[in-house]
């Protein structure tokens, strides 16, 4: 009675979601590969001159923007993620160890998650404003002259620094929340046992808390790598559609891989651009896939500490 299969009924319940997913998820997935191998695809005419194996990929990779995008994306990913993971871990451990005001702190730390990336990006841009910004004001108290972070002709490294601060700020909330719920699910007995054995706080942290939390730390780190690799909206928030401080050259752009995809898509009417967008998206997919595979491999091998 219950183990019996009921394909017809299942079809009825699945149909709405499956139809939508077929059109807007499964088909686009295959079509992205199809587009990426079309030669000289004209979007307006919906026609192409046969196929090319690497033509579109070559166009993407040889574009000077690609190198810049790879550099920016890697820097954003490999600097902001480790920093925000460590800070989030420390905050959540601290938060878990206090009773008073825990709820209030939790709410505050969660705020960045529910805000609008564009709006907050604008606020950050203004914090980093050379003349009217908060940061230079504070630096001024220590006798440091105003620095041109994101203004006219700001240097790439200054702009990148500002972007990294914003990225770390934006990434904390989710990680703190997840770590905190992980910490709260650790059996209190371990801590009682450690206390009976007079274990110093530092040892409790390094020998009990972090090892028990390590699968989650690892998981969050890798998924954050993937998330950071897709950075785009934060940059629009801070720098607008040009993706760079005003007045600077394109070599100082803060464009990312996702930026490349949308850049190509914005020029979709030009010959082959749609295919380049598809090719760039496949490159993005391949890189995130590597992260995913590494994660699967490692978490398979050592499921727990």
């Amino acid at each position: 009675m219950l183990e019996r299969q009921n394909n017809l009924k299942a079809l009825f319940y699945l149909a709405p979601a499956m139809v939508l997913l077929s059109v807007f998820t499964f088909y686009p997935l295959f079509n992205a590969f199809f587009l990426a191998f079309l030669r000289d695809y004209e979007f307006l005419l919906r026609s192409a001159k046969g196929f090319t194996l690497f033509g579109n990929f070559k166009n993407v990779i040889t574009d000077p923007d690609f190198g810049i995008a790879m550099k920016n994306t890697s820097i954003i990913t490999f600097i902001s993620v480790p920093i925000s993971v460590i800070i989030a871990l420390l905050i959540s451990v601290a938060l878990n160890s206090v009773k008073k005001l825990q709820g209030a702190f939790q709410t505050i730390f969660f705020l960045p998650y529910v805000t609008n990336a564009i709006a907050i990006g604008m606020a950050f841009a203004f914090i980093f404003h050379a003349d009217y910004g908060l940061l230079n004001t504070i630096l001024g108290w220590f006798g440091i002259n105003p620095i041109n972070w994101v203004g006219l002709n700001a240097s790439w490294s200054n702009a990148m620094f500002a972007l990294l601060v914003y990225t770390i700020w934006g990434g904390l909330a989710f990680k703190i929340m997840v770590f905190l719920s992980g910490l709260q699910s650790i059996d209190k007995q371990y801590y009682d046992a450690a206390r009976v054995d007079a274990t110093p706080r530092r040892r409790v942290l390094t020998k009990i808390t972090i090892p028990l939390l390590s699968p989650m730390i690892f998981y969050i780190t890798v998924t954050s790598f993937i998330g950071a690799f897709k950075a785009y909206r934060t940059i629009i928030g801070m720098f607008g559609e040009t993706l760079r401080p005003p007045g600077t050259l394109s070599k100082d752009s803060l464009i990312t891989i996702v930026g490349l995809v949308y850049d190509a898509l914005a020029h979709a009417d030009a010959t082959g651009k749609m295919s380049e967008a598809a090719a760039a998206s496949i490159i993005l997919f391949s890189i995130t896939m590597i992260f995913t595979l590494v994660q699967m491999q490692i978490s398979k091998r050592r499921v727990h500490f």
């Binding site: 019996r4 299969q5 079809l11 587009l35 995809v261």
Partner: peptide, 27 residues
């Protein structure tokens, strides 16, 4: 419900979560 190919279909669905949204946006 119990239906043919349920586990496979579900696996296929959740694997799409690994794919960056930009890939879908183009098409």
């Amino acid at each position: 419900l119990n239906f043919k190919g349920r586990d496979f279909l579900f696996l296929a669905l959740i694997s799409t979560m690994m794919i960056p949204g930009e890939m879908f946006v183009i098409t």
